[in-house]
Design a protein around this nucleic acid. Structure first.
Lengths: 100, 100
DNA sequence: CCCTCATATCGAAGAACGTCTATATAAGAC
DNA sequence: GTCTTATATAGACGTTCTTCGATATGAGGG
């Protein structure tokens, strides 16, 4: 069960959303992210730690570098839970559908 | 098009989520909400203003009281947009399905 | 009009947050 | 071992946020 407040707090920052967009479909090193965004390296590390604590990114060390990817299962699960908890009897229903 | 950062910021507070849970399926006056939560009336008014600015609640004045309800369309739309923007090619897809 | 009830706004205090610089840690090359 | 590269952590600073008490506004009753 996901803590909806913690989930929303993790999403509630412009820089973190930029990081999430970058890591959404590829593994990126911290330096890759620093190069892509206009913020200092410790700032990126800080935001990655926040996202990691919320379960929204996975990290993997390879040699000197650490690669990050978005945990999309977790992201989608958080979105579903927010929608379902706050809009239970809603005529437009949110459905998780497994593609073939 | 919903601003995903603003949407997440509006959700990113415990008290606001409590208010959203209360107003999810009923119209409540400010006093109803104050009675249900353990916070002062100006605090509730403040959070309602934040939610309103984000489009997450609707308000309706009836006599001396103002009644608030959750805007569930908006909430679900925000959740969908977050999921779709950050997990585009995800094998588990988020679908908005209209019930009969 | 004045009074009362319901809500909104103001202003301040304290906490939480985002960002930076400086420094520490981790890992590989030599 | 030392040196270099990559990332994390610590500490400081300014900003934003949450909360409150006090006060203003709005609406109806007498």
């Amino acid at each position: 069960m996901i803590d909806k407040v913690a989930f929303a707090k993790a999403l509630a920052d412009e820089t973190r959303q930029q990081i999430m967009a970058l890591c959404c479909c590829q593994q990126l090193s911290v330096n890759d992210i620093v190069s892509a965004l206009d913020v200092a390296q410790p700032t990126v590390s800080h935001h990655l730690a926040v996202l990691k604590k919320a379960g929204l990114v996975r990290s993997e060390r390879r040699g000197k570098q650490v690669f990050y990817t978005l945990n999309r299962e977790r992201l989608v699960a958080g979105c579903c839970q927010v929608a379902e908890d706050f809009a239970p009897g809603f005529p437009v229903k949110l459905v998780v559908q497994v593609e073939e």
